[in-house]
Design a protein around this nucleic acid. Structure first.
Length: 740
DNA sequence: GTAAGATGACGG
DNA sequence: CGTCATCTTACG
């Protein structure tokens, strides 16, 4: 931010009499819990206005916030410095920020910062110079280069760099022509508005199920007011088409309405944006962390001025300055990527529902494997539900079989059971594609010294280093630390004693290549380096049938459709169950049902095999029988008995410090200071499962409470009573998902 | 978030 | 006793 524009001087016509200064509260985008008051002698900017004000020794941009009363007397206040020429934040966004700050227990200013992160968006339309052709070209010294530029220029303004690049001359030629009068300079907005969605465009033909669901949603949109609705339908049942209809209805109902579609991952957004464009004839405004500065500013400004009517974005899009948000769709609502774990910790699905509730508009949650939270909300009548039961075009769900690894064990050092190998053999001879799924990047998750038993960990960390054989490096998946794989054990100096333990996808790929040397085998994971092919290329090759066996991590589970894929083998179905956090089984169900759902379609039924050492585990039995609702019901009973969410409340209080003694002392002091309250239990402190990361040690206390007690109030009382020494950092995570 | 004042650690 | 680093506090 450079300089604020001067305070707008919109006095009344009689103007002469100076108005009595008034009080204005301003919230700054910094981790501050409250707004600060200022005097204002001009017109009082309305709530939500972007302003600048002296704050300490400097001038800072902030937002006019609802006043809280008690404050210094008016005479003592500093004066507002300026008002930005930008549309004010809407009252429902202000209410949402206040609510979200109270809920997450982060300072209001920290939440406002998420809204204002687009650094230069407030500068307003900083015009860009562009050029158009004029008629005044007589008497001009003409050169070949000038001629080419004039030919390229027309009535619509284009930038110097754009024109120059087209005819391959320097920008000086363009500027020279402008100075000579043959081109005229015009100012254009560097952030062009987004094309308006065409709401009358005919959507695709809907099945009966889809039609019914779409009409139900449209009716909810028509009715207005807040309601949360689950769109519950298996993969391929056409949830997207259904909520597109809801979007169309919301935007049609009010010509100023805006809608937001939230997606869990950036990777999903690119093909998705195309789908939106096909449906609405215009690409939506995108919002995710990979946008460039200019794209970010454009989306932000056009959302703020209300002209971007449809936004597709990742979780942080929830904090865009919508003028008139009327509908939010949360696609894949169960996805854990909605949980923000850094900075302000929040769950975008829950925040979306709160935003809708405060703004008085509906929120649709879509999933094939809805979260237990959402299912319970439906069961208890807080959310509505529309179901899409039949798979689109009657495609069958794959047959799912369990392979008991205790009975059908692979040879030592191998990971594929004889049963799974036979199935892949069959698929290869039928010229159909197979997917081997293992949610573990790299070659081996653990490297052990055979001589002394030393485990390779990152310096200052307790997390295991994962061998990546393509790069011949050991990598820490938590911090990104990496080192070349040493030849000698760093503990006992034994040479060639470091042994890879357990499989990652690279190791499974190695086994597959040995077993099926004639097959076309590719590896797909989120790692950028290995192999000459990018993720995109591998996905395209898979779709085109140029791969026989794809060995992939989680990235293959999401949103891709492979027409000739008929077999999915899950190498380690038990992987996500270890560690036993409260959502482990649920997550496993969601992930594995999504992966196995990749196999087969109408004309080619698919099958899936899950390798497991615990076939009797309820999750795996439920996957095999396809009985999602029975599984959820059993999970629900388990959670209720233990008083866990959604039947109880949970918060994690995490302490971090380089100084382990201070950490220990503080954790114990906190525990001792925990006030007694009926229905509240404080567990811990316990070391985090990965105790040290980058030298920082972490301990955690968990607060478990009955649903009817306010966790936030309890935590506020508690934490206010304990003096935490400087080097120890405390963060609160309401309703934690990650227990690392 | 940031800058100023307060407190403490080491060096002349 | 002075200077520099680091912690604490306040910002209207």
């Amino acid at each position: 931010m450079n300089k604020a524009p001067p305070l707008t001087e919109n006095r009344h016509e009689d103007g002469a009499a100076a108005q009595k200064p008034e009080r204005v509260s301003v919230l700054f985008p910094m981790p501050l819990p409250k707004a600060y008051d200022y005097a204002c002698d001009g017109d009082v900017p309305p709530l939500g206005s972007f302003v600048t004000a002296p704050f300490g020794p400097r001038e800072v941009a902030g937002v006019v916030w609802p006043s809280k009363g008690e404050a210094p007397p008016l005479e003592k206040l500093k004066t507002l410095a300026g008002v930005f020429d930008a549309p004010p934040l809407s009252p429902d966004l202000i209410a949402f920020i206040d609510w979200a700050a109270a809920y997450t227990m982060f300072p209001k200013g920290a939440l406002l910062r998420m809204v204002m992160r687009v650094s230069d968006a407030l500068e307003g339309p900083r015009m860009q110079t562009a050029f158009i052709r004029t008629d005044a070209s007589e008497g001009l010294r003409m050169t070949a280069q000038r001629k080419a530029v004039l030919a390229a220029a027309g009535a619509s303004p284009r930038s110097a760099s754009d024109l120059a690049a087209q005819v391959n001359v320097s920008e000086a030629v363009v500027r020279g022509l402008a100075d000579a009068g043959a081109l005229a300079r015009v100012d254009i907005d560097p952030d062009p508005p987004f094309a308006q969605p065409d709401l009358d465009r005919q959507g695709p033909e809907l099945s009966d199920d889809q039609q019914f669901a779409a009409e139900t949603l449209a009716a909810i949109v028509e009715e207005g007011g807040h309601k949360a609705v689950l769109i519950d339908g298996v993969t391929g049942s056409g949830k997207t088409e259904v909520y597109f209809e809801a979007v169309a209805a919301a935007l049609k109902k009010d010509p100023e309405a805006q809608a937001l579609i939230l997606l869990p991952e950036i990777a999903l957004t690119l093909p998705f944006l195309t789908r939106v464009e096909e449906r609405f004839g215009a690409a939506p405004a995108p919002w995710h962390s990979d946008l460039t500065g200019a794209q970010r500013r454009r989306s932000w400004r056009r959302v703020a001025d209300g002209s971007a009517r449809l936004v597709v974005g990742a979780r942080s899009a929830l904090f865009l300055p919508f003028q008139k948000l009327r509908l939010i769709v949360v696609d894949e609502e169960h996805d854990n990527a909605y949980k923000q774990e850094e900075g302000v910790i929040y769950h975008a699905r829950d925040m979306a529902v709160a935003r809708g509730s405060l703004g008085g508009f509906p929120v649709a949650l879509a999933s094939a494997t809805p979260s237990l939270e959402t299912v319970v909300n439906v069961d208890e009548g807080r959310y509505e539900a529309v179901g899409l039961s039949s798979r689109f075009a009657d495609a069958a769900m794959p047959d799912i079989h369990l392979i008991d690894m205790r009975e059908d064990a692979p040879e030592a050092g191998r990971w594929l059971s004889p049963g799974l190998v036979r199935e892949i053999d069959k698929n290869l001879s039928a010229h159909e594609q197979s997917l081997l799924f293992l949610n573990r990047r790299g070659y081996a998750p653990l490297t052990l010294c055979r001589r002394c038993g030393h485990k390779m960990t990152a310096p200052g960390s307790d997390s295991m280093l994962v061998e990546h054989r393509f790069e011949n490096r050991l990598i820490c998946h938590h911090t990104g630390f990496s080192m070349p794989k040493p030849t000698a054990c760093p503990a006992c100096n034994a040479v060639d004693a470091l042994t890879p333990c357990g499989p990652g996808i690279e190791r499974v790929a190695e086994e597959a290549k040995e077993r099926w040397p004639q097959a076309r085998i590719s590896v797909l994971s989120s790692d950028t380096a290995p192999g000459p092919r990018s993720m995109r290329d591998v996905l395209d090759a898979m779709k085109a049938g140029e791969i026989d066996i794809l060995i992939a991590t989680q990235v293959a589970a999401k949103g891709h459709h492979f027409p000739n894929l008929t077999l999915v083998g899950v190498v380690d179905a038990d992987l996500g169950l270890a560690g036993g956090d409260l959502r482990a089984a649920e997550r496993t169900y969601q992930l594995l049902s999504q992966v196995t759902g990749r196999a087969g379609r109408a004309e080619k039924p698919g099958r899936a095999f899950l390798q497991t050492y615990q076939p009797e585990a309820p999750v795996l039995a439920a996957l095999a029988s396809g009985d999602r609702d029975a599984f959820l019901a059993a999970e629900a009973i388990g959670r209720r008995d233990l008083g866990f969410p959604p039947y109880g409340r949970l918060a994690a209080v995490t302490l971090r410090s380089l100084d382990e003694q201070a950490l220990d002392r503080t954790a114990n002091a906190l525990k001792v200071a925990a006030p007694y309250a009926d229905g509240v239990e404080v567990l811990g402190p316990a070391r985090a499962p990965i105790y040290r990361l980058r030298g920082v040690a972490r301990m955690r206390l968990l607060v478990k409470a009955r649903r009817n007690v306010s966790l936030q109030a309890y935590l506020a009382d508690w934490l206010a009573a304990v003096k935490v020494p400087g080097p120890v950092r405390v963060t609160v995570d309401i309703n934690p998902y990650s227990f690392l």
